[in-house]
Design a protein around this nucleic acid. Structure first.
Length: 800
RNA sequence: GGGGCUGUGGCGGAAUUGGCAGACGCACCAGACUUAGAAUCUGGCGGGUAACCGUGGGGGUUCAAGUCCCUUCAGCCCCACCA
């Protein structure tokens, strides 16, 4: 086994000193922007999973450069947020210090891997020079009315002591610590993301995302079309608005359900006879985490409101009102019209509480189960006899509109983005509150609002941000009236800094704006964005929303930030489990580099399997890649002085150029590596190889194993450094051999093979086929019905 | 409950998109070198003595199916009392 450590160091130094991978902001060459999700520099260092996507994009970027593009392939650090803070608390150091240390580790590891990042554009989201612009952009949201403070029930994590967005608390557990999420009423900054729901759906048309990612986004936005209908509350001038996707079933409404938090209860508490009982139910459901709500979903609970009755606006029938936690305040209107005959949940509820079930669509047996399919409308007044669902819905909506009792309404699962966190380690929200002027933005020339240096940054017990304790930071003057004002003490969520970072790479050192117009125009959209599937919804939606807003106010030139988005698969431990410290199955890339070398690790990361799928780590296979590279090294001893391709392998070399070029482009890295292995096997079977054979082979391998290929190219004096040389091109006329093996089948079974000239005609192919002894045996005495000839491939003889 | 994905040797995975299933690699076996091992090289490697059988199972379309259609089973991921 060769040790390539010194060679790797040598070439890493060479690239650094020559600024080989520094992108130009203006260039004659066409531009190409590769973006890989910037890492969170955690305490545990780089993961072999990181190494997989970095190696893959590095191969693409290196190849693209050699193809004559001006490639931007940047790297930075997403370093605000809880993990850094937790790490700092645990190790009793300042988060700033923790981040610096971790970045140093990560960067060292990346350099050792030889990833061709443009480090001249590196930054961390925690740099004041960067978060100044995060704050500035937040103020654009504020100034355009898209950031508002709202007192609402928010998802709250008692362990992290902070509010969470819906996206961060799905499944009813905290994304960070896994503790259950409870509801807590708090004033929060919120970004009006729901306003962009349609734009976020439509914008997908301008992208070239993988279909699975588009679908995930669309599902997350969760658009649903239906109607809002007003049900009068008997004995008041008031009404309750419900949301339904099936207004056509309104005749089947036998009760109504409102969410436990519905405001109507407080409003009419004097009228409610069982107010105490209802209050008790409310409190119980507040304590339940969303997870528990779902767990208990089989068993419906609820309380009938005694004293309030609604009126069905179409039939004028009286409708009882219940509260139940199967209706959510944060979706629709927090109230539903229950149609037990045709909705499963309503059906269960009605069964449990003995409420009438009234059939309005013919088709099922509602004594056994609700019927949800299509059918003829019955017991439905003006809709009777209609058999089409859509027609019935349309007719009812028209009726609702004509009578001012309802209208069409589209709803989204996507909520506004809760943007406040009660934590220390985040971008301070750059607003001050003045008793006279209200909320006032910090003026641009005072940005960034720096995080104060403090000794204590643990979250507080009462759920206030730790910043609230620093009185001389909190107290300030109003930029508007110079009166007394206090700073906002909440910080931004972890997602803020990653919502525009690709723009900063375009012009990372600019002090006058987040990026110059020239830079933004020049780089345009990110051509290729690689990240994990776990970010296909949240990060990608936040980022697209943020970017689209900047576009709408004229700050960026494109509607969408990313042309193409692809996701890599996860690497599992050798035991087939997700790698984790507790399972002890974590593979450290540094160890692998020390044992096998960076090139072997890179090669294996690409060879390991289908890039988009999850794969299991296997160190023996990594060793196999190391063996391959050792053989690449050794074959140099077979060199002669010729500057032409060896005749015997000329075709396969051309084929390999084509294959590797296309495979790297299409993320089929595993077959690119395998093609190179095949070519090496061929070269090994020769007595000698030429300089041109070797140079081309090294060039093709260079994006995958950049160190040893450069070294060998130099050692044998094969030409200019590979990274500054144009990518090999194949000769279209040298892709096929002069002969090929014709496959001959009889009734679909292979009965013979024969090597024939490539330019054989159909008739000649048939003749060759029928001439094979074994074929003759199989067709002997039988009638030939058909002869199927596939050019350059096979002949199938159909006999009876 | 809704949506998405995957099932191919002992293992990771190939298969020009309907045309020789198992490329390439790992593991394994045998041989060479060696006092011996490691490393390296050479050969073998889906099952079956064979006819043949083989891409989760069962049907179908076709001259031809891992690939297309129907059906069924198993596993994974995301969302979820979303009205």
């Amino acid at each position: 086994m060769y040790n390539f450590t010194e060679i790797e160091k040598k070439w890493q130094k060479y690239w650094d000193e020559n600024n080989t991978f520094v992108a130009e902001n203006n260039s004659e060459k066409p531009k190409y922007y590769y973006l890989v999700e910037f890492p969170y520099p955690s305490g545990s260092g780089l993961h072999v999973g990181h190494a997989r996507s970095y190696s893959a994009l590095d191969a693409m970027a290196r190849k693209k450069r050699m193809m004559g593009y001006n490639v931007l392939f940047p790297i930075g650090w997403d370093a605000f947020g809880s993990p850094a803070e937790q790490y700092a608390i645990k190790n009793k150091i300042h988060p700033k210090q923790a981040v610096l240390e971790n970045i140093k580790t990560f960067k060292g590891q990346l350099k050792k891997l030889g990833i061709s990042f443009d480090y001249s554009r590196e930054f961390s989201t925690t740099d004041p020079e960067y978060y100044k612009w995060t704050q500035w952009q937040f103020l654009q949201f504020f100034n355009h009315g898209l950031a508002y403070k709202d007192k609402k029930n928010i998802n709250w994590c008692n362990t992290c002591k902070t509010g969470l967005s819906n996206e961060d608390s799905s499944g009813g557990v905290c994304e960070r610590c896994g503790d259950k999420v409870v509801q807590k009423e708090k004033e929060q900054w919120v970004l009006k993301m729901s306003m962009y729901a349609d734009k976020l759906i439509e914008g997908l048309d301008e992208t070239d995302f993988q279909e699975r990612i588009k679908i995930a986004q669309i599902n997350w936005i969760g658009k649903s079309c239906g109607a809002e209908v007003l049900f009068d509350i008997k004995g008041t001038n008031d009404n309750i608005k419900v949301y339904t996707t099936r207004p056509d079933t309104i005749y089947g409404t036998t009760f109504m359900v409102i969410a436990p938090e519905h405001p109507i209860i407080e409003k009419y508490k004097d009228k409610i006879n069982n107010y105490k009982e209802i209050k008790k139910y409310q409190n119980k459901s507040k304590e339940k985490s969303e997870f528990e709500r779902i767990e208990l979903s089989k068993d419906k609970t609820g309380v009938k409101i005694d004293g309030l009755t609604a009126v069905n606006p179409v039939t004028k029938e009286l409708v009882q009102i219940w509260i139940s936690d199967y209706v959510m305040m944060n979706y629709g209107t927090g109230a539903i019209m229950a149609v037990p005959a045709h909705d499963e949940r309503d059906y269960e509820f009605a069964k449990k509480f003995g409420i009438e079930i009234k059939e309005v669509i013919k088709g099922g047996d509602i004594s056994k189960a609700p019927y949800i399919g299509e059918g003829e409308m019955i017991n439905s007044g003006i809709l009777n006899g209609i058999t089409s669902k859509n027609e019935a819905i349309e007719k009812m909506i028209t009726y609702l509109k004509e009578n001012n009792i309802g209208e069409e309404k589209t709803n989204y699962r996507l909520q506004d983005w809760i943007f406040s966190r009660q934590r220390f380690w985040g971008e301070p929200i750059p607003l001050v509150h003045c008793d006279t002027c209200g909320w006032v933005p910090v003026p641009d020339n005072e940005l960034p609002v720096l995080l104060p240096d403090v000794a204590k940054y643990e979250p507080t017990e009462d759920g206030e941000s730790p910043l609230a304790l620093i009185t001389d930071w909190v107290n300030t003057t109003c930029p508007n009236c110079s009166g007394h004002a206090v700073r906002e003490t909440d910080t931004m969520p972890n997602w803020a800094g990653s919502s525009w970072y690709w723009l900063r790479y375009m012009d990372a050192k600019n002090n006058d704006c987040f990026a110059s117009k020239e830079a933004l125009d020049y780089w345009g959209m990110v051509d290729y964005y690689n990240g994990g599937m776990e970010h296909a919804t949240r990060h990608l939606l936040y980022a697209r929303f943020w970017h689209r807003f900047l576009y709408d106010i004229g700050l960026v030139p494109t509607k969408e930030p990313f042309k193409k988005r692809v996701a890599h698969g996860m690497i599992l431990g050798e035991d087939g489990q997700k790698m984790s410290k507790s399972k002890g199955n974590v593979v450290n890339p540094d160890d692998m580099i020390n044992l096998y070398g960076a090139d072997a690790l890179r090669c294996y990361e690409l060879f390991i399997g289908d890039y988009e799928k999850e794969v299991i780590w296997n160190e023996s296979s990594l060793n196999g890649c190391k063996r391959f590279l050792d053989r690449v090294y050794k074959i140099g001893s077979k060199l002669n002085n010729s500057n032409e391709y060896t005749k015997e392998i000329e075709i396969i070399i051309n084929k390999t150029i084509k294959k590797v070029t296309e495979d790297i482009e299409n993320m089929k890295y595993n077959t690119a590596v395998s093609a190179l292995m095949i070519l090496l096997n061929e070269m090994e079977s020769l007595e000698h190889i030429t300089k041109k054979d070797y140079r081309t082979f090294l060039h093709l391998l260079n994006p995958i194993a950049p160190h040893i290929t450069e070294e060998l190219n130099e050692k044998y004096d094969l030409g200019n450094v590979l990274c500054n040389s144009l990518w090999p091109v194949y000769d279209e006329n040298k892709l096929t051999d002069e002969t090929y093996e014709l496959i001959v089948q009889v009734n679909g079974k292979v009965r013979g093979k024969v090597i024939i000239p490539t330019n054989s005609t159909k008739e000649e192919m048939e003749k060759y086929a029928l001439g094979i002894e074994n074929v003759k045996i199989h067709i002997n005495g039988k009638e030939i019905i058909k002869l199927i000839v596939i050019p350059s491939k096979m002949v199938n003889i159909v006999v009876k």
